[in-house]
């Protein structure tokens, strides 16, 4: 089991993800530089947090054209598990693998704090070890995490059970309290909170561990 961790210029959570996967879960990992096109031997892909390409223009707007993401798109279309955390979620929406967009926090502040969340796993592969309606805590750290889509789109997402993570106390003004979304097949998850920062009791709980461990099962 090898997890590929995409590294863009400006990614800054790539090593945190590696620490969580290798140090806490004894998984092997491989960094995938943004120019790489070969995902051979990779069983799951993580798009980590950070500021890909400086977040110029819009968060994720430039990253979307990275060569590695063509391979990631094929991988996701083939049913491979793909996880986008924070900036990774923004990249997934810019790519069109998930609908909507992430915009400036309602109160403009960069938010770095624990966030209580409600999990509705549905068919999402990354959340299969969580109970329906389970309450967990994961840290958030973002300036542009306000999920935005139109009312019809939100209703459709709700109806299809794709809003799999919801804020308990909406910190950023996201429509529908959306903190995380999955695709129709359930193999792609994008979320603003950072599960890799909640994998060791010494650093703020272990609620994120089961999410990352789900690729093992």
């Amino acid at each position: 089991m090898t997890v590929g961790i995409v590294v863009f210029p400006g990614s800054n959570c790539d090593r945190d993800v590696r620490w969580a996967l290798e140090g806490c879960l004894q998984l092997s990992t491989r960094f995938l530089w943004h120019e790489e096109r070969d995902l051979g031997g990779i069983d799951a892909v993580v798009l980590p947090g950070g500021f890909s390409y400086g977040d110029y223009l819009r968060c994720g707007a430039i990253a979307r054209f990275a060569p590695v993401l063509e391979a990631v798109r094929d991988f996701a279309d083939g049913g491979g598990p793909v996880l986008g955390i924070c900036n990774g979620f923004q990249v997934l929406t810019e790519m069109g693998l998930l609908p909507g967009a992430l915009t400036r926090n309602q109160k403009l502040h960069f938010l770095c704090e624990p966030a209580p969340l409600e999990v509705r796993p549905g068919t999402c592969q990354w959340l299969k070890s969580y109970g329906e309606g389970e309450a967990i805590n994961l840290p958030i750290a973002h300036g542009e995490g306000r999920y935005q889509c139109d009312a019809d789109q939100l209703q459709q997402l709700e109806g299809e059970g794709r809003v799999v993570l919801r804020y308990g106390q909406n910190p950023n003004g996201s429509v529908g309290d959306v903190a995380g979304l999955t695709n129709p097949a359930g193999n792609v998850l994008g979320l603003m909170p950072h599960p890799e920062r909640a994998c060791d009791p010494a650093t703020g709980g272990t609620d994120g561990l089961r999410l990352l461990a789900s690729v093992l099962a």
């Binding site: 400036r104 926090n105 309602q106 306000r146 935005q148 003004g173």
Partner: peptide, 10 residues
């Protein structure tokens, strides 16, 4: 127009 512009409001 349907999207909130918090920077504009500030």
């Amino acid at each position: 127009s349907s999207v909130l512009d918090p920077a504009g409001e500030a």
